[in-house]
């Protein structure tokens, strides 16, 4: 070629390539490379509740609740089910916990796990017929269900009607609550990420890609999707039950639109499909919205502008961007120089 032309090449760091393999265990540096990002997050989050004032402790609590809902949304989206109604899981979990403690006077120690499990089963059964729907149609059903429950409770006056269920037994204190939520949220992040690396996760990922091919592979699509809905419902119903006992109250706002929209925006901001991105998004959005309270009415405007800037400027999500920067570097190479993969005839496309 006449003039020297360069192109930007993206290359995996050497240490990334090494840690992909079993050799990761052979050196301290490689172990650190794998563990450090995870460890930093844990070491940052664990002592955090101790340093926060009462107000910011509440903010962190809401953040973690939204993070759990976002995790649930991300899991559903990873199976190809786009949910617009996380409030369904949240509200069902909340009301079940409230019902169990007012009717039978159970302690939170029992109501929360019971409401989590029963709520997840209930939601799965409820959504089971809708699982054959794809894309936006499933989203519409999930969007309608929380609104439906809200009106049913209002009209029939069951479960306290518009007044809700109040004076429920309290939890032992915000700091302990935060630690419980933290453990559950981190457990979900690492657990879900791990699950998606197994063969079971492979099926779930394949469902999003092409569920007809999965069906052709002799796998019962409906049944696997139901399992995914159950797994995804768990953190969300837990969040609902937990917040019910935190407020010692559950009412119609448990089915509010906020609990559907905020998790979704968190995942979009943080990066879908990675679970860590969901939590990261929630950790940015909820505190941001609190900080912006100082701006009064302009709060929503600034909040929206920040959201738009990130979604337009970084559509892959913050987490995926950071991850790429961590694993890869870029360099300029002359056009003539072809990387090894290309020379071997690998097209990679």
């Amino acid at each position: 070629m006449a003039k020297m032309a360069y192109r930007k090449e993206r290359v995996d760091r050497g240490i990334k390539a090494r840690t992909d393999d079993i050799f990761a265990l052979s050196s301290f540096r490689e172990i650190l490379y794998l563990v450090l990002p995870r460890l930093l997050v844990i070491l940052f989050l664990l002592p955090l509740p101790l340093f926060l004032g009462t107000y910011w402790q509440k903010v962190m609590l809401i953040t973690l609740v939204i993070a759990l809902l976002a995790l649930s949304w991300d899991l559903l989206a990873s199976v190809g089910l786009v949910s617009l109604g996380q409030a369904l899981f949240f509200g069902v979990g909340g009301y079940l916990a409230g019902f169990l403690s007012t009717r039978w006077g159970w302690y939170p120690l029992f109501t929360i796990p019971a409401a989590t499990l029963a709520g997840a089963v209930f939601c799965t059964l409820l959504l089971y017929p809708a699982l054959r729907l794809r894309g936006i149609y499933f989203g519409l059903i999930t969007f309608a269900l929380p609104l439906l429950f809200m009106r049913v409770i209002e009209a029939t006056k069951i479960l306290g009607g518009t007044e809700g269920l109040s004076s429920l037994p309290p939890l032992p204190g915000t700091t302990i609550e935060l630690y419980i939520l933290l453990v559950v949220a981190l457990g979900c992040v690492f657990g879900f990420r791990r699950m998606f690396d197994t063969d079971y996760g492979l099926v779930l990922k394949a469902l999003r890609d092409n569920d007809r091919s999965v069906e052709a592979g002799g796998i019962n699509v409906q049944w696997y999707k139901a399992q995914a809905v159950f797994l995804a419902a768990l953190p969300a119903t837990f969040a609902g039950a937990f917040l019910t006992h935190h407020y010692q109250f559950v009412g119609m706002p448990a089915f509010a639109l906020d609990y559907s929209i905020l998790p979704l925006t968190s995942v979009v901001l943080g990066g879908a499909g990675s679970f860590a991105g969901a939590v990261l998004g929630a950790c940015i959005l909820v505190p941001l919205s609190e900080v912006l309270r100082a701006f009064g009415t302009l709060r929503v405007v600034i909040y929206s502008v920040v959201l738009v800037i990130f979604v337009v400027g970084l559509p892959e999500g913050i987490f995926h961007y950071l991850q790429r920067k961590y694993h890869q570097f870029e360099r300029l190479v002359p056009m003539e120089e072809v990387s090894n993969g290309a020379r071997a005839g690998f097209k990679g496309y």
Partner: peptide, 16 residues
């Protein structure tokens, strides 16, 4: 003339 296309680091068209 001298068309080169890379998909990431994979060479799809080489000086075609």
């Amino acid at each position: 003339k001298n068309l080169i296309v890379f998909y990431e680091n994979a060479l799809a068209l080489n000086d075609l």
